[in-house]
């Protein structure tokens, strides 16, 4: 199993760099994962998106529809891409500790 080390934090990740065990997620891990997705600092806006995705995942075991994510957080898709350059599915979901969304996406 691949491991990554960020600021002294060692994480077991899958081949795409998503944490292997979503249940170990915490804010420190989010901060570490953010660095792998080109997000140097998690601002309040970032947390709004990350926490929304995280809570949705805890309730439904899947990422929310992008459209719902935008509506419920008040960010446009463009703004989400500004916050997470690799996009909601890859960047934001990874930082929120979800498995990588798969399928035809």
């Amino acid at each position: 199993m691949p491991q990554i080390e960020i600021d002294g934090l060692v994480l077991n990740v899958d081949e795409d760099g998503f944490i292997e065990d979503p249940t170990i997620w915490n804010e420190e891990i989010a901060k570490a994962l953010a660095k792998t997705e080109g997000v140097t600092e998690l601002t309040e806006d970032h947390w709004k998106v990350v926490n929304y995705i995280r809570n949705y995942y805890l309730q439904y075991q899947i990422a929310p529809m992008i459209r719902k994510l935008c509506k419920d957080t008040g960010f446009s898709l463009k703004e989400i891409y500004e916050l997470f350059p690799s996009g909601p599915a890859k960047g934001a979901c990874k930082i929120a500790g979800l498995p990588k969304p798969t399928g035809c996406v």
């Binding site: 309730q59 899947i62 529809m65 969304p101 399928g103």
Partner: peptide, 21 residues
């Protein structure tokens, strides 16, 4: 029963949201 791994509660939530939209 789908490639993304969407379970029924999530599907129902999504459908409800789209109906509202």
């Amino acid at each position: 029963g789908n490639n993304m791994g969407i379970a029924k509660p999530a599907l129902l939530d999504s459908c409800e949201f789209l109906e509202e939209e």
